[in-house]
Amino acid sequence: MTYENLLLNISNEILFIVINRENRLNALNKATLAELHFAISGAQIDATVGGIIITGAGEKAFVAGADISEFALFNEEEGKMLSQEGHHKVFDVIANSAKPVIAAINGFALGGGLELALACHIRIASENAKMGLPEVTLGLIPGYGGTQRLTELVGKGKAMEMILTADMIDGEQALVCGLVNKVVAQENLMLSCEEMMSKILSRSPKAISAAIVAVNASLDKNQNGFTVEIEEFGKCFGNKDFKEGVSAFLEKRKSTFERD
């Protein structure tokens, strides 16, 4: 696929995805969402990719929301389909990625932009980051998982406050409430994300994928997370990563895991 709104680069097993609409503060439009679907889905079957880092072009915004002009005249059914398609093709694909995904939040992450970050497994923010869900100011609510994922991360009370007031919070506030994992200086953002991803990629790829499945199951009302954990734990014993990890431990050496 030819990407017009994304910049993709693979380095040291990390796929860097840059949302490249800086003149629109990297707002998500239909074309960008379609490209994200192909990029994330493609990464799942690309053996050269171990993990993914998503960020926005420039220093002002990660993603400052959705492109409102595209849905300003939608009716109820069109609005429902917009949300449903976004969930199925992008946000759920990221959340359920077998490969770890880190959001590098470099500036404004608002509306659909914050929802994009929420779908990622880990979030690291720059000191100038501003995060919020302003949908109620437009007569809407978050429609790409924001009401669910924000609540999971920060609790019902804080999620209610952020969604109902539409107020933004900064990086330090986001760190305190558990919305982000880490806050760093703007100039150190990508390096911090790379360092964390590199550490993750030094671990067993199969165990990482199994852990993502098990953790996600804890939040799925249709699954018993403990049962999923048991299943995924058992599966680990049948793969080569387990044999390598145990051998390395017993031989007092560093494990060397291979990516399929």
Rank of each mutant, 00 (worst) to 15 (best):
E77P: 01
E77G: 01
E78Q: 13
E78M: 11
E78G: 05
G79W: 08
G79E: 07
G79Y: 09
K80N: 10
M81T: 12
M81G: 01
S83L: 08
Q84N: 14
Q84Y: 15
Q84V: 01
G86P: 06
H87K: 11
H87A: 13
H87L: 15
H87I: 15
H87V: 04
H88V: 15
H88W: 10
V90S: 05
V90D: 06
V90K: 06
F91C: 06
F91G: 06
D92W: 12
D92Q: 13
V93S: 08
V93Y: 02
I94S: 12
I94V: 13
A95G: 02
A95F: 07
A95V: 07
N96F: 14
N96M: 12
N96A: 12
N96Q: 14
S97W: 09
S97I: 11
S97P: 06
S97L: 06
S97Q: 05
S97D: 04
S97K: 09
A98R: 15
A98V: 04
K99H: 13
K99Q: 11
I102P: 04
I102V: 12
I102Q: 03
A103Q: 07
A103P: 06
A103D: 07
A103Y: 03
A104D: 05
A104I: 02
I105N: 00
I105F: 00
I105E: 00
N106K: 08
A109G: 11
A109S: 12
A109L: 03
L110V: 14
L110H: 02
G111S: 15
G113V: 06
G113Y: 07
L114H: 04
L114A: 09
E115P: 03
A117N: 07
A117I: 02
A119W: 08
C120V: 08
H121C: 07
H121G: 09
H121I: 12
I122Y: 15
R123H: 09
R123S: 10
I124L: 10
I124M: 11
S126C: 05
S126N: 02
S126K: 00
E127C: 01
N128F: 02
N128M: 05
N128R: 11
A129L: 06
A129D: 03
A129E: 03
A129W: 01
